[in-house]
Design a protein around this nucleic acid. Structure first.
Lengths: 205, 205
DNA sequence: GTCTATAGCCAGATAGAC
DNA sequence: GTCTATCTGGCTATAGAC
């Protein structure tokens, strides 16, 4: 059989587009730069994806469907609350280290077009946090954790995990640490963040 | 004496530019839109600020010097650690509600140009976190808080305060809350966040 | 399917009248 | 200082050869 090309052109373009869009954003990206990154001609981008807008949407959806299952782990896993927090924190930080531009890209583009955000999050029939909410309330009722609104706890989990990757230039500057040290601190957060959260909410028997 | 114009043209332009740049970013903003927002002609922008780049820098520096003293409060206040966390959280969230686009703008543009970030944070002789570090270490030595790296605690404080404003479209979508409810949740965070942090680090006597 | 060449448009910047 | 008109370059998109 013929050796299947491991990168057909369409995929080649999409990967190049990811690189450029995620670094520069929709408005900052240039079709020429994507073509150069892919090592092909600019006309091909339009041949395969029709327009910059459609290529961007393909990239965004691809990025989002990579992130979604990660976030889903917090919301709808069947495990206990503490396990969930620990495994999410550990997994998510590993994940993000291999996709450093991703969370900032998603957040930025959702801010640029909040209507798009609403549409996307609705059509993806994204898991709502009802299950998580029930679980939190049970833990409170059983005296396992102190009273806290599920939404606030959810925001806190997201914030502690995601923010240091989104705001790395700011945090590096403020704490005056170099890239190498910063990376080490991020690795430490795999356990640090879960400890921080659990220490905050756990009731001492 | 003559009634001083409460808005001279230069200032008028700067304010319009803030609006547009903070919403659209450097690459998304259009000089025409800034002119329209200011109610004047496009040529005036160049007359006063020479180029889009220079106008942008004026806006960025203005925004940053508004944010800087806020952040400074965490780092170099003379108060006790717990007071510092409580007052920062309360003040910062009030501040950000009146400048909703500001943190995202700063973070986005620092990501777009990390070299600029380094330069800015250096030249502003920004307070380093040494004082904060000493304070945290003293609290640990005195058994007031559990062991934690000052950098990690600092990241956590920043994350919990800033992230929900930067990622509001995402968090609104995931938790399925409307704008009104979200705003209420943000107001609650004025005390919620400080409690969350202090609960996590405080040693129970 | 892939390329080169170019159309067509739009945005930043400037010239020059007032 | 403020305006209108215009230049210039760059970017998306397409036409058309191969």
């Amino acid at each position: 059989m013929s050796k299947k090309k491991d990168t057909n052109t369409e995929e080649l373009i999409l990967n190049a587009a990811k690189q450029v869009f995620q670094k520069k954003g929709m408005t900052g990206a240039r079709m020429q730069e994507i073509a150069d990154e892919a090592g092909i001609n600019k006309a091909m981008l339009h041949y395969y994806y029709r327009s910059k807008q459609l290529l961007f949407e393909a990239v965004f959806k691809s990025a989002f469907s990579l992130l979604a299952p990660q976030l889903n782990k917090v919301i709808n896993a069947k495990t206990s609350l503490f396990d969930k927090i620990e495994s999410f924190t550990n997994n998510y930080i590993s994940f993000i280290i291999t996709h450093p531009y991703l969370p900032n890209f998603i957040i930025q583009e959702l801010n640029r077009n909040p209507e798009f955000a609403k549409k996307l999050l609705a059509e993806k029939h994204f898991p709502n946090i009802d299950n998580f909410k029930v679980q939190v309330e049970e833990h409170i009722a059983n005296g396992i954790i102190r009273p806290i609104k599920a939404e606030q706890l959810f925001f806190n989990i997201m914030a502690l995990n995601i923010f240091p990757f989104v705001a790395s230039p700011l945090l590096k500057g403020l704490t005056n640490v170099d890239d190498e040290t910063y990376k080490k601190l991020m690795l430490e957060r795999k356990t640090e963040v879960a400890d921080f959260i659990i220490n905050s909410i756990k009731v001492i028997k």
